[in-house]
Design a protein around this nucleic acid. Structure first.
Lengths: 210, 210
DNA sequence: CATCTACTGTAACTTTAGTTACACAAAGCT
DNA sequence: AGCTTTGTGTAACTAAAGTTACAGTAGATG
């Protein structure tokens, strides 16, 4: 494990902390679509992401979903942090967007390391900072943008995350994540295609020049 | 100052920390509608709210506003925290919703106290936790609710914040904060009135039984 | 008290999004 | 192959929200 840790967090954490993480953390590989955290669960470990991407979803009372944001390597889930500390249930769902590698840290270490390591405090604060900003961007999108613009942002982000300008999703899946209906997405995608920005195939969207 | 501090934060912080806050913090009273933080400003102090309420607003490129959430006594602005630590510009605007009393802490103390005081760490983490949850609630509202439901939530919250079931706002002001148009708000308010839930007066809404 | 400004009410219309319904085609299965 | 499931395209309609326009009225101001 030490290698993955070194590569992704070596520059962030001081050596003694890295050693501790190596000692108490457990390495975990999860496949795409693996459910890492479910809404309402108590969270007992904090995941450090070393490779891949995770999507964070919110759900309303009717079971309708909304994509909040993606996590990438070097990130941790501030929501989880937040739950760990408060000992509260998870407010969100975390699903592996791609195959991913994680280091799981038992939550008891959170407080201990916050006292001991300046770099850990920095990391935790920075995670919160980043997540708050992601949330703000999400709010901007849903409050200020129309669905066509949200869709474009979504496609760009999704392509960036997977580092591939093909997106292998169905219209239905996209509709879920943007919390709208399949018909609306098909309609808007068709419009984007007619503008030459994308090409539509079955379960596959090719990004040309958005 | 010590009295306000004791009352609102006495149970949260250990005595030595309270003393330090008393020593380095500056007390500030601001009137309703006072602009505490503006978008794009660098933030050099962290406000602890001891009385009154503060509204936190987001703005898009066209200058359209959206109310994110309210802060009440015992709260601090996690956004500000976040900015302090990251030394970045403020992403939000903070306006006194009512007359308010604040204790301003120089940001250098943030890191110092995070190392020294467990209660401070708790407080900071908890603030982040609360703010993330407020943001989630905001997202829920704008993503999952229709305007009439958002308006009702807004009225309830606003009444609660001012501890008064009269709201002294114009339809235009409400429209700004919910990021919609005055006509829409007038329409929906009229409907609520006809249901007997509220009474409409000039610049004044009386909440009956929402 | 006459005038002006700000606030509210409402009608009529447009735009955007959501819904229903159905046709058709690609992939999966036996 | 034939059948089924899943994904997409599109039309027709409804609902919600945003826009424009204008009238009326309560307060503020000179």
């Amino acid at each position: 494990m030490i290698q993955e840790l070194q590569n992704n967090y070596g520059h962030l954490f001081e050596a003694p902390l890295l050693n501790e993480i190596n000692r108490v953390g457990t390495f975990k590989e999860v496949p795409e679509d693996f459910k890492i955290i479910e809404i309402g669960e108590y969270v007992k470990v904090m995941p450090l992401l070393v490779s891949g991407a995770i999507k964070i979803l919110r759900e309303d009372n009717d079971g309708d979903e909304l994509l909040l944001y993606f996590l990438e390597k070097g990130d941790t889930c501030a929501m989880t942090l937040s739950c760990c500390i408060g000992q509260t249930k998870s407010e969100i769902r975390a699903i592996a967007e791609t195959d991913a590698k994680l280091i799981m840290i038992p939550i008891e270490k959170m407080e201990e390391w916050s006292e001991k390591y300046k770099s850990w405090r920095r990391f935790v604060f920075e995670s919160y900072h980043n997540r708050l900003n992601e949330m703000l961007e999400t709010i901007d999108s849903i409050a200020f943008l129309k669905m066509d613009e949200r869709l474009i942002k979504y496609l760009i982000k999704k392509a960036k995350i997977s580092n591939d300008n093909s997106i292998y999703s169905t219209h239905q899946e996209i509709a879920y994540e943007l919390h709208t209906s399949r018909v609306v997405i098909s309609r808007l995608l068709k419009k984007l295609e007619s503008l030459g920005k994308i090409e539509l195939h079955r379960s596959h969207i090719l990004i040309n020049n958005i």
